[in-house]
Design a protein around this nucleic acid. Structure first.
Lengths: 241, 241
DNA sequence: TGTGCTACGTCAACGTCGCCGACATAACCT
DNA sequence: AGGTTATGTCGGCGACGTTGACGTAGCACA
């Protein structure tokens, strides 16, 4: 086989499939995303994708080297969607909060792809744009460079980490996901107060709280701490100068 | 079939396999961890596990209902190793910091397994013990229950999220990992100051900072914010009472 | 020491998966 | 109009998780 995939710009012969569909990378990515969205993460198999497209499953390999290649392409699409239309307001805290929540929700909209995407450094245009935007918010807010970089690092990795964690939970097969949720009511709700007093005292709070993502609260904690450090840096500068 | 698995305490007939190995849940878990460690996460299949054990693959189903069941057992084992030997000191902040770092390092010791396990709720003994310990630290420190639960949630998911993220980086094939690191020097180091002023101004800081995990710093930020909220709650209580 | 029960290791098989080599044909170029 | 070749289709390979049936070896009890 050696090279089955032809780069998109060189494609010229758009032969329709037996069922009359004209394939393209874009169409395949959109169809894959729709498949994940409608029928769950485990529905994305090459055979099912072929069926959904109205083409032989192996036709997908004319456009992507492997399913991993396809998933990375989907991931790249997600990064673009997360950033689309964002503009800074000048309020650093509100801006960072908005960016964080955007990343989180964009990834969670397509958990399967998020799992693969979250931990890679691509260096591509969408990524560099995001890095520049976040650093810009921090530096114009008045954070000294070393602090700005450290907070940038913590902020981004926390966002991606939570996104990956929450995406993974969503990407679970339905049965496993239900079981995981059930644990908080079943197991933790019935633990003996003698052996596990703290869990017993807060079981009702736990079972409702663990249903939601912990990200928004964690994000607020991070922004709180950052604000405190900014105030500290400003005070030190005033005192000194 | 209905029930193939016999609970561990009721096992009595320890028949060796054809190759002379005496199976047990513990042996299977250890072997699975070793398999993942040596040959990557994708090497954990029932067939390969059987081969590594010196037993028929289906023998695994005498000890675990499914591969997911096995995975949960592995996850709980990792939690157990993280907590092994930990004792509270009475200083809530130091205690939480120690637990967080323990979780992080325990998962990073088995990056491939961490990737599979970090996002599961097991409800098993090691996990409940860890939950009880963390909640205990927070509640005896004086956090009101709702706040204790919220901070618990943020703390745990932050630890697991970073663990998963950093584990993923460690688990990458050597070539891909090197490429990812290189990006920070190559791509980001050469961006034009006109189009990306903030990155250009901090490129040297970025390339050194992104080499390390952002977790310790993010953890400190979280603890800072928690301490501030505890102080606020204490002040409100004093004022009121 | 012998006998019966059954836990547990083994075997073969099912349906699914990703992926690939070979083939056929329609779209384009000249 | 004819040749080239990109691209859709077909059949099949090896691996996957999982299961039902089978046999045998270990234990309990005599």
């Amino acid at each position: 086989m050696s090279e089955r995939v032809v780069p998109e710009p060189q494609r010229r012969r758009r032969r329709p499939t037996r069922q009359g569909v004209v394939l393209s990378r874009e169409l395949i990515i959109d169809t894959a995303l729709r498949l994940i969205e409608q029928h769950g993460a485990e529905a994305l198999t090459v055979r099912r994708l072929g069926a959904a497209l109205g083409a032989d499953p192996s036709a997908v390999y004319r456009y992507f080297h492997s399913t991993d290649d396809l998933l990375l392409a989907i991931a790249d699409e997600l990064i673009g969607r997360a950033q689309a239309g964002w503009r800074p307001t000048g309020d650093w805290r509100a801006d960072l909060r908005a960016i964080g929540l955007r990343i989180h929700t964009a990834y969670l909209a397509h958990p399967q792809a998020a799992l693969l995407a979250a931990h890679r450094t691509t260096g591509r245009t969408h990524e560099t744009a995001a890095v520049e935007a976040i650093l810009g918010v921090l530096r114009t807010a008045g954070f000294p460079d070393p602090e700005a970089v450290a907070i940038y690092h913590a902020f981004v990795d926390q966002s991606l980490g939570f996104a990956a964690l929450d995406a993974a939970a969503l990407a679970l097969p339905a049965a496993a996901a239900a079981a995981d949720l059930q644990v908080w009511q079943a197991s933790y709700g019935r633990l003996d107060a003698a052996t596990h007093p703290h869990i017993a005292a807060t079981a009702h709070l736990l079972s409702t709280d663990m249903r939601r993502s912990g990200y928004p609260y964690a994000l607020d904690l991070l922004l709180d701490a950052a604000a405190a450090r900014l105030a500290g840096a400003a005070a030190a500068a005033t005192e000194k100068g």
